[in-house]
Computed example of a mutant assay.
Amino acid sequence: MSALNDTPVETLSFEAARDELVKVVAELEQGAPTLEQSLALWERGEALAARCEEWLLGAKRRLEAARAAASDSAGGAES
C-alpha cells in the first residue's frame, strides 16, 4: 500500500494535506520497498509539508489583519 495520492497538492485543504502527510511519514518510517518509491514518498511529503505551511501562514496573516482591524476600530471609538 502506498500513501501516494494523485490529487494535486495545491488543491488540498490544510486538513487533507496534514492527514496525507501523516500517512506518508508513517510509510517512510516503515520503509518503502524500493528507493524509487521512497524518493516519491519523500517528494510528496515535502510538497505536503509546504502546503500545510502555506495554509498556516495564510491563517496567521488573516489573524493579524483581524487584530489590526479590531485595534483600529477600538482606537477610532475612543476619539
Score class of each variant (00 low, 15 high):
Glu64Asp: 15
Leu21Pro: 04
Ser13Lys: 02
Trp42Ala: 12
Ala74Glu: 07
Arg51Gly: 01
Glu78Asn: 12
Ala40Arg: 15
Val9Ile: 08
Leu39Ile: 09
Lys23Ile: 06
Leu57Cys: 14
Trp42Phe: 05
Ser79Gly: 14
Ser79Gln: 13
Ala74Gly: 01
Arg67Gln: 15
Leu21Asp: 09
Glu15Pro: 01
Arg44Pro: 06
Ala70Ile: 11
Ser2Tyr: 05
Ala16Phe: 00
Cys52Gly: 05
Ala59Leu: 07
Glu20Phe: 00
Ala59His: 06
Gln30Asp: 13
Trp42Lys: 15
Glu78Ser: 14
Ala26Leu: 08
Thr11Gly: 10
Asp72Asn: 05
Ser2Ala: 07
Gly76Ala: 11
Asp6Arg: 02
Leu12His: 03
Ala26Lys: 15
Leu12Gly: 01
Arg61Glu: 09
Ala50Tyr: 00
Ala16Asp: 12
Ala74Thr: 04
Glu29Pro: 08
Leu35Asp: 13
Ser79His: 13
Leu28Ile: 01
Ala68Gly: 04
Gly76Phe: 01
Ala3His: 09
Ala70Ser: 15
Arg18Phe: 13
Glu46Gln: 12
Lys23Gln: 14
Glu54Gly: 12
Arg62Pro: 06
Thr34Leu: 04
Leu56Val: 07
Arg18Val: 05
Ala74Phe: 04
Lys23Arg: 15
Leu56Lys: 10
Arg61Met: 10
Asp6Cys: 08
Ala65Ile: 01
Ala74Val: 07
Leu57Trp: 11
Asn5Cys: 14
Ser2Arg: 04
Lys23Cys: 14
Leu12Ile: 02
Ala47Phe: 00
